[in-house]
Structure formats: structure tokens, C-alpha cells
Design a protein around this nucleic acid. Structure first.
Lengths: 183, 183
DNA sequence: GCCCTATATGCAACTGGTTGCATAATATCT
DNA sequence: AGATATTATGCAACCAGTTGCATATAGGGC
């Protein structure tokens, strides 16, 4: 039921259309939440029938109508309850680790290209986060809203975990290259 | 399609019953893969009809029959192809981050107990991984098989990421306590 | 004139994971 | 004697995410 509450969280900050919510997932929230537009619209439909959001149809000339959603009192109430309720910790499952376990049967060299591919994607990802951080800090001079402060904390998480991941990949590389294991 | 290949990976190391595979997920693989027994049995059924594994029924006295599964040539072939094929990078979505974003509307203090709960779970988790590491290193004197070497690398990943997570939680704590943000 | 992108919305089918329930025997604890 | 845990297997319903497809308009580039 997480997406439901993520959408409520976004709407708690202000009214938005489904399209705007989708765009938000693709940009500001992209490094810690992902959702397709189909998911978003379906969820908005459910929230609407449950009375958690209200939709206002706005006619536009030339363009198709758009629906602006706003959170209701009951929606806010549900969000509040979710925030204080115990969340399940996410289960970390990581394909590459399984591949590493399996590559004894395939042969190490066979696995090498896939490993390199994953590492370069991770590097690229980390580079992007560092760029985002620099951009954030530059905008800090104009002052940060509470929302921007928390977004920065989210970014910090990405950076700390991403750097740990890179350190681990270096350890794996050492193992694949020369069989050396870390302490 | 990941579980399918995880099961194949486990069976590539030797024949096992569904029950043994389930137990393996609960113990050695617990910190990087999770699967319920229902999932395991369903997947074994599929792999069986697809000719990727063979099942041998073994009658037992008193106890119900058990089925020992072994990987077939076609199963090994599929595993090999999966290992070298590009994997999708996992999407990280983290409920707590959303709660942090949402708690502006709830009030910070309301969120505090849930934050503390998550932090103590994370601490417990890290402690468990450290115990596992100590145990692993103690057994190292008898020598490690290739499989044990990779399991240790898996453990290293848990440790590095877990420690990064703890550092981040400290940053969040500082923010919740005094509004201080890290650089 | 044709293609692509952006805006704006949504249905339908499928896949994978979760939850609930069911069966059946032995061993062990109280 | 009865309760609980362990071994061993599985179905069925449900829920969430993915993929494919569909519609409709406006504007810009080739």
C-alpha cells in the first residue's frame, strides 16, 4: 500500500494533476521512488472512490481536459496514520549477488562483462547524484524550505549508500581479478 | 524472473527438496534474498513443467513423500544465459524517506517513535551481520570453498551498506533533533 | 506533409509476491 | 493426555507492478 501513501504525501503539499505527479516521480523523487503514469492514474482513481482525494475537471482549449486532484480531510487523516504506523523494512534482493554465486558453474570470465556493465551503471548513477548535490548546495543560498531540506536528506542517503556500493564493487573486482578477499 | 534463476542457482550446487531450498532462504541467503515456501514450491512446479529441473519422488516411512529436485542440462543452460545477460538495476524505494517528506504535515514529534523503531531495527540488523562475519572468519581457518568465499562477499555488501545506512540515520536524527543538516 | 515531443488520460492482460488455508506424520515439551 | 514444533507439500485468492495499447491536441523540425 505504499504508493497510495506516497501519492497522498505529494498531494499534501498542494493540488496537482496526475500528469504533474508522474513528472514529479520522474524528476525530484526519481532517486528514491519510481512509479509509472499508469500506476499513478490507477491509484488516483482508487483514492478518489475512497474519498481520500477530490478531482476537479478543468476544461482547456485545444488540449484535453485535465483533472486537478486535492487531498481531502480523510486523505490527510489516513496519511497521518500511515506515517506513525510501523513500516515494514524493505527486503534487499540483489540479482548481481546471485549471479556471483552462480558464476562458479559458468566460469568467472563469462561473468566479467556483465560485472563491468553493472559497475559502470553504478558509477554513472553516483556521478548523477553528486551533480544533483552540487546543484542543491548552489540553490541553498536562496534558502531552503522544509521540503527542500528533506529532499537534501534523501539525496544524502543516495550518496552514502551509493559510495558504500562502489566500495563493495571494488572488493568484488579484486576478488574476480585475483581471488583476493577483503577482511 | 529473478526467483526462477535464484532457485536454479541453488540447485546448481546440488540436489535439494523444496523444503531445503526454503530453509536455505531463511538461513544462509536470508540477508540478501527472501522467498516464502509457497513461492518456492510454485517456482519448482514451473521449472519442472519447463524441463529445467527433474523431480524424484522418495517414499519415506511415516513421513509424507518428499521430492528431490535436480537441475537438468537445459536448466543449467538457462542459468548460464541469465548470468551473462544484462540485469536490471534494482529500484530503491524507501518508505521512511516518504514518511520524512510527509511528516511536515503531521508534525515532527509525531514521527519520532517510528523513526526510533526503524533505527533500532537497523542497529539490530547490523549487529546480526557483524556476528555472522565473526562466525565466518572463525571458520576460515578450515579453509573456504568458492561458495563460501562468495557468501562472504555477500556479507561484506550487507555490512558496507548497513554501516552507510546507520551513518545516514545519524544525520536524520540530527535533523529531527535540532534541524541541523549535514554538508 | 510527416514525424517527433509534450501534454493529458486511461484500460486490459499479465507476472510476481503475499496471505490464508489445508493436510499429515513424528518428536518433544508440559 | 494434549499442545506445540518440525518436516513436507501445495492450492486459491488477492494485491501491486509491468507492458502493451489507445486516444487526442499542439507545436516544432525536416
Amino acid at each position: 500500500m505504499a504508493l497510495r501513501h506516497v501519492v497522498l504525501t505529494v498531494l499534501a503539499r498542494g493540488d496537482k494533476t496526475g500528469y504533474e505527479i508522474t513528472k514529479a516521480f520522474e524528476t525530484v523523487y526519481s532517486h528514491f521512488w519510481r512509479a509509472s503514469h499508469q500506476q499513478v492514474y490507477r491509484e488516483l482513481g482508487r483514492l478518489s472512490t475512497d474519498g481520500r482525494v477530490n478531482a476537479t475537471l478543468v476544461a482547456q482549449e485545444g488540449k484535453p481536459d485535465k483533472k486537478i486532484y486535492s487531498i481531502t480531510k480523510r486523505g490527510l487523516e489516513e496519511l497521518r496514520q500511515w506515517i506513525v504506523a510501523p513500516t515494514q523494512i524493505p527486503r534487499s534482493q540483489y540479482d548481481m549477488l546471485v549471479k556471483l554465486l552462480g558464476c562458479n558453474t559458468v566460469g568467472r570470465e563469462q561473468f566479467r562483462p556483465e560485472f563491468d556493465r553493472i559497475r559502470s551503471i553504478s558509477e554513472e548513477w553516483l556521478r548523477m547524484l553528486r551533480d544533483m548535490r552540487r546543484e542543491c548546495l548552489r540553490q541553498r543560498e536562496q534558502g531552503w524550505s522544509e521540503h527542500e531540506q528533506v529532499l537534501y536528506l534523501a539525496l544524502r542517503r543516495g550518496l552514502l549508500l551509493g559510495e558504500a556500493q562502489m566500495r563493495w564493487l571494488k572488493e568484488v573486482e579484486g576478488y574476480l581479478d585475483s581471488g583476493k578477499l577483503p577482511d
